[in-house]
């Protein structure tokens, strides 16, 4: 694993017990994702996209093989170590935004920084900068209920990138957005990828997202069937 290789999987296999048998979600997946990539794991439902994203996000452990994220072997981590990895180096973007409704935009974005015990004045600067990146500075005091879907997802992006993580994992980030908002969101993410050098890994089958990807890893029945770099 070189310094630029953020995610490396070797013969990564994940099986789930179903009844007396096992369902294989991932079969010996070999993968390497470098710094600054804008990569998508694409494929139909049940192809193993989310399972792969879960393992990369230290939310799940492999059954066989290994997965290293930023040099840490996921299969050997305990809950606390996994939480620490997520806290310091990973950002998550969900399909349904999952903003905390009682907190305003500023506070939602501030939350990951509180977990890192960053001092108050620095936190304010970081949150303001993150809101600038996504173009929502004027909505800092708004509550999630007062935002449109696109704005909510932009807040979720700001929350994911405020701590300037090495990797942002996005699971179907445009699934609940119309075309215009989807493009707006994706452009924001492309800009952040280029300006901050953040690696983005998507799980998607949305053509709009796919059109922005610079690398497409196609999964089918838990196996990589295609891995294409887009020029």
């Amino acid at each position: 694993m070189t310094a630029s290789e953020l995610i490396v999987t070797k013969k990564l296999t994940k099986q789930y017990p179903i009844g007396g048998n096992f369902f294989t979600a991932l079969r010996e997946v070999d993968l390497c994702i470098d710094q600054c990539e804008f990569t998508g794991i694409v494929g139909p439902s049940g192809s193993g996209k989310t399972t792969l994203l879960n393992i990369i996000g230290a939310l799940d452990a492999p059954t066989n093989g290994n997965a290293k994220v930023l040099g840490s072997e996921i299969g050997k981590m305990n809950h606390v170590e996994a939480a620490k990895l997520r806290n310091q180096y990973l950002g998550f973007i969900f399909q349904t935004y999952n903003l905390l409704p009682v907190y305003n935009v500023f506070e939602n974005v501030e939350f990951p920084l509180l977990l890192q015990h960053i001092e108050s004045s620095k936190r304010v600067d970081m949150v303001n900068k993150a809101l600038e990146w996504v173009g929502l500075s004027e909505k800092a005091k708004s509550k999630p209920a007062q935002l449109s879907g696109g704005e909510s997802q932009r807040v979720a992006i700001a929350r994911a990138i405020v701590k300037q993580p090495k990797i942002v994992l996005a699971d179907e980030p445009t699934a609940n957005l119309d075309a215009q908002n989807s493009h707006h969101i994706l452009k924001t993410m492309v800009t952040l990828n280029e300006e901050l050098g953040t690696t983005f890994v998507f799980s998607t089958h949305d053509e709009k997202v796919i059109s922005y990807l610079r690398r497409k890893i196609k999964l089918s029945d838990g196996e990589i069937v295609d891995d294409t770099i887009v020029n």
Partner: peptide, 15 residues
């Protein structure tokens, strides 16, 4: 449940 899920994803420990 949702709030707890988000907090877990953000890297807060279960404890």
């Amino acid at each position: 449940y949702g709030e707890v899920g988000v907090r877990l994803a953000m890297g807060e420990t279960k404890g």
